[in-house]
Design a protein around this nucleic acid. Structure first.
Length: 184
DNA sequence: CCCTGATTCGC
DNA sequence: GCGAATCAGG
């Protein structure tokens, strides 16, 4: 991917807005966060000062001995930083009663028993990663819309609480399976 | 571990 | 100039 004027401009904008390098890389697409950071430096854009992130590196001179360069197993060229920030179809976000659920079961009626409602981190779309809860909160058309953002342990798109909301079984077939397994 | 930015240096 | 590898820190 080339650093076209447009892309550079967008980079500058997002960087000045305080987005992290990885987030910017995700938005630009086709570049790694390293590429973004490298470009930022080349452009002599102001670093993150000492803002929380990482303080200025003093006088580090590791000289780095390894650097076999060719040691890289040539994974695959441009790592698009993973399919981060999954675009969710609007219909999926809505969850309104007027959505045609067809064969799907109606959501929510259950007590859901335990599972404590987590405190939403109120993440925006671009803040989502592969391990943050992507449960939408609020009206997508309104300003306060955000995502849960809690830990989504185990590759699930949702946190424990929202996973229960999302995957409420029609009936507990696990018991039957477990019973069958135990009977063997 | 996850993440952040910073730096080096082969290309 | 580019960016992966690496470092350093939260």
């Amino acid at each position: 991917m080339n650093w076209t004027d447009e892309r550079v401009e967008k980079l500058k904008k997002l960087w000045s807005e305080g987005l992290s390098a990885s987030q910017i890389a995700a938005q630009l697409g086709g570049v790694s966060r390293n590429a973004v950071i490298g470009k930022v430096h080349r452009l002599c854009l102001p670093g993150r000062a000492k803002a929380g992130g990482t303080a200025a590196a003093p006088a580090r001179t590791p000289k780095r001995q390894p650097a076999p360069a060719a040691a890289r197993p040539a994974n695959y060229p441009a790592r698009p930083t993973a399919p981060r920030a999954i675009a969710r179809p609007a219909g999926n976000v809505a969850l309104s009663e007027d959505v045609d659920l067809d064969g799907l079961e109606q959501v929510a009626p259950m007590p859901v028993s335990s599972a404590v409602l987590p405190i939403s981190k109120r993440l925006s779309l671009t803040d989502l990663t592969e391990r943050t809860c992507k449960w939408p909160v609020g009206d997508p058309m309104k300003e306060d819309f955000h995502f849960c953002g809690c830990d989504s342990t185990e590759g699930s798109p949702y946190c424990a609480y929202h996973a229960k909301l999302a995957y409420q079984p029609v009936n507990d077939r696990r018991r039957a399976a477990a019973a069958a397994a135990a009977a063997r």
